[in-house]
């Protein structure tokens, strides 16, 4: 058994996942970060994307997250996110609908709402990408 790192996925409502994994790849604000045991201390933002849990050289589980924060210590990787769905559960049609709704919202956004609208477009785009990767 290889060394493991404790992976935690936390939403405001509850602790979604807490388990030992061999490697996890998370979408950091500046690019994907692969977390192995003994990673240095790091705090980062999380961009919308997919978290891959690796085991035995293969991806065991993929989870879509809609942005958040990330804290890494040598023995732990904590992801704080408001939105997460296992990639297999994403409904492609729903994701597409969400993207077009977000685009519409952006088109009609004024200065006050533009930033929020852009963010929701990004989340929707990442979700569509995750959905098409799964199928």
């Amino acid at each position: 058994m290889a060394e493991t790192v404790e992976f935690e996925l936390v939403s405001p409502q509850k602790l979604l996942k807490s388990e030992a994994v061999e490697m996890v790849v998370v979408p950091g604000g500046d690019g994907d970060i692969g977390v192995l045991p003994g990673h240095s201390l790091l705090i980062s933002t999380l961009r919308p994307g997919v978290i891959d849990i690796h085991e035995g050289g293969k991806v065991r589980e993929s989870i879509f997250v809609g942005g958040g924060f990330l804290e890494i210590s040598p023995e732990r990787c904590t992801v704080l996110t408001e939105e997460s769905t296992p990639v297999g559960d994403i409904d492609k049609a729903a994701a597409d609908a969400r993207l077009s709704a977000a685009n519409d919202a952006l088109a009609s956004a004024d200065d006050a709402t533009r930033v929020a609208a852009e963010a929701s477009v990004k989340v929707a785009e990442a979700m569509v990408a995750a959905a098409s990767r799964a199928s």
Binding site: E8, V10, P12, Q13, K14, L15, L80
Partner: peptide, 9 residues
């Protein structure tokens, strides 16, 4: 259930 998030935040 909401406590872990708040603590880590």
């Amino acid at each position: 259930a909401a406590r872990p998030y708040a603590e880590r935040m």
